[in-house]
Design a binder for these strands. Structure first.
Length: 574
RNA sequence: GCAUCGAUGGUCUAGUGGCAUGACUUAGGCCUUCCAAGCCUAUAGCCCGGGUUCAAUUCCCGGUCGAUGCACCA
């Protein structure tokens, strides 16, 4: 193994040269925080997204939706992004440093700075010194820097729109439609894979902090009192490294426990969260993130959103960036749904029918409108409504209308005690949210797959991508570019393409060079047509990782490669 | 955003106030019977804008991108 000191540089160099990732619009000089996926990168990204779909859409049955990347202001008022997704900042007039206004104040022992208004903060800051240049700040303007990209919808008197900072809101705003789609039953889930946007102040770290990035998010709506995942046994014995609050406080190694134990011991809040911790571990491993470079870190109480019951980040270790948050898994309770109910004025409740209707005794007041009407005239309706809500005493009932207490004698209404059937109840669902950063997953896979080794005194660069995510699954070569070999090879490549795989045909240069080209872009298998092929209709099949070759019949090679790519057969068994 | 440093074909690199090196890669050809062999040929470059100068890739200023530190990271 060769020293991987600057593995990031090597990967980004490879990614640029071979068409995985490019700086965006290079002819105009690029923009930080934006990247282009080249031909191989796009294919790899699509394949990673498809692995994700296999887990969430196919297996979990949470169907995918697709919402606009631009949303109207109400959405983000409800979500809290308009107000909360911004920082109060100011600029030092002396050194022109941008400062977090509340942080400066708090550094000078001024409490509650984060809850102060901009005006109040400016007042407080006036007498304080800049932490950068130590000059007195004096009168400064405190302004909000919102991390959302703002835009205008339509011409003329325009409505404000924002580029979404997360895909999640689409699942919330479509909640009522989704509920009907799933025929009014909990639990159900919906997912979305798409672009999100955050106007980061200073994006660095290449593709780790982007201003436009791809998220894959699932919102799973569950009954608030039923947080046991129906398929929990699937992962009950699955073990993942958990860096809980306790381990972080004690600075100890992650616990390696089964999901069953994690829930029983109260490390993880409930089965749902635990289930998606395990599923995430499973999924990341399936795309090629190394299990020994993965851990799940629980949010500490002060970094967790106040409404979140439990929150974990899947972190992936990078030689360059250390532990990188790649997936967030949170129990967001009913916060989002309640917020959209308030903002939209609509009910997002779910009516849950009981197995058998419950018998409930209750007192029912029936106002005698024939008597109330003539007596109270305009107030009669309000009094009648109030009577229905109150519990009358033996002497009569007292209701309050517009602050005025009115006594209603018993002869103006009837009281009946009755037993009614209550068929069910309305609940506000809780939301379990696994949220994946696709771009970071891609980077992690590239970094964990990159390898160098010496072969015959030459450095061999190889991306050990799992076949499930490799952009090109098989290469087909004629050993010589003559004697009818290219025709046979082209024919094989065509058959493989018909079988649904991406095959790269290459007849240029020495055979070893062609193998190396494919090694560098992670193509797991290569087929070479040689002179024996003409005699006995066999070809060599070469395995990228071992560089071993097997002689196999040309007939059926398409099905064989397909099963190798799908993992139903292994090369070593050939 | 601030400070420091950097930017030469796709990649790595030499060098310069006056015709810009070499290697690798790539493409075409010759050769070649399984892991970057060899030979011939070709393509391709001084980050962008302004200034100084007869002349700027080179010097100066501004910007972009990248690295590092600070700040920021719901």
């Amino acid at each position: 193994m060769i020293a991987m000191s600057d593995v990031y540089d090597k990967i980004m160099d490879l990614a640029k040269r071979r068409g995985f990732i490019w700086p965006t619009s290079e002819c105009y000089g690029s923009v930080a925080g934006f990247i282009d996926y080249g031909p191989l990168g796009s294919m790899m990204k699509r394949r990673i997204e498809n692995v994700w779909r296999k887990f969430y859409v196919v297996r979990e049955g949470y169907y995918e939706i697709e919402c606009p990347t631009i949303g109207q202001e109400d959405i983000f008022i409800a979500s809290g992004h308009v107000k909360g997704f911004s920082d109060k900042m100011c600029q030092c007039p002396h050194c022109r440093e941008y400062l977090r206004a509340d942080h400066v104040a708090e550094a000078h022992d001024i409490h509650n700075a984060s809850s102060m208004s901009a005006e109040k903060l400016a007042e407080v800051l006036c007498a304080l010194c800049c932490p950068a240049c130590e000059e007195e700040l004096g009168p400064v303007e405190v302004f909000n820097f919102n991390l959302m990209f703002q835009t205008a919808i339509g011409p003329g008197s325009q409505r404000t729109g924002y580029l979404r900072p997360e895909t999640a809101q689409g699942m919330f705003t479509d909640f009522q439609r989704l509920l009907r789609f799933y025929r009014d039953k909990l639990p159900f889930g919906a997912v979305q894979i798409g672009k999100s946007y955050r106007n980061e102040i200073s994006p660095r770290q290449g593709m780790i902090r982007l201003r436009e990035f791809t998220q894959a998010e699932a919102e799973i709506f569950v009954h608030p009192a039923e947080k046991n995942h129906p398929a929990f046994p699937r992962y009950a014995d699955y073990r993942v490294p958990l860096l809980g609050i306790q381990q972080q406080e004690d600075c100890t190694e992650p616990l390696f426990v089964s999901m069953r134990d994690a829930v029983q011991q109260g490390i993880v809040a409930n089965e749902y969260v635990a289930y998606y911790l395990a599923l995430t571990h499973d999924l990341l491993a399936a795309i090629g993130v190394r299990p020994d470079k993965m851990r799940f870190r629980q949010h500490l109480p002060d970094e967790r959103a106040h409404y979140a019951e439990d929150c974990w980040d899947a972190e992936v270790f990078s030689e360059r960036f250390g532990w990188v948050e790649t997936v967030g898994i949170a129990d967001r309770t009913d916060y989002d749904i309640k917020a959209h109910e308030r903002q939209s004025g609509q009910s997002f409740a779910v009516f849950i029918q009981y197995d058998t209707p419950q018998k409930v005794n209750r007192v029912r007041v029936t106002p005698d409108m024939g008597a109330l009407g003539p007596k109270f005239r305009g107030k009669a309706k309000a009094i009648a409504d109030a009577l229905c809500e109150c519990i009358p005493g033996p002497e009569g009932a007292t209701v309050t209308i517009d602050g005025e207490e009115i006594f209603i004698p018993p002869e103006l209404y009837k009281v009946r005690e009755e037993t009614v059937d209550v068929p069910g109840e309305e609940v506000t669902p809780h939301v379990i949210e696994p949220s994946y950063g696709i771009d970071r997953m891609i980077y992690a896979v590239l970094e964990h797959s990159y390898d160098e080794e010496m072969v015959d005194d030459e450095e061999r660069k190889v991306l050990r991508l799992t076949p499930a995510v490799a952009p090109i699954q098989v290469a087909v070569f004629p050993l010589m570019n003559r004697d009818g070999l290219p025709e046979i090879a082209l024919d094989i490549a065509e058959k493989i393409r018909i079988a649904g795989l991406v095959a790269d045909y290459d007849d240029s240069g020495a055979i070893g060079r062609r193998y190396r080209r494919q090694d560098e872009i992670g193509t797991p298998f290569a087929i070479t047509v040689d002179y024996d092929t003409k005699e006995d209709h066999t070809v060599t099949l070469r395995d990228r990782d071992s560089m071993q070759q097997a002689r196999v019949p040309a007939e059926g090679i398409d099905a064989l490669v397909r099963s190798l790519v799908e993992g139903t057969r292994m090369f070593q068994e050939l």
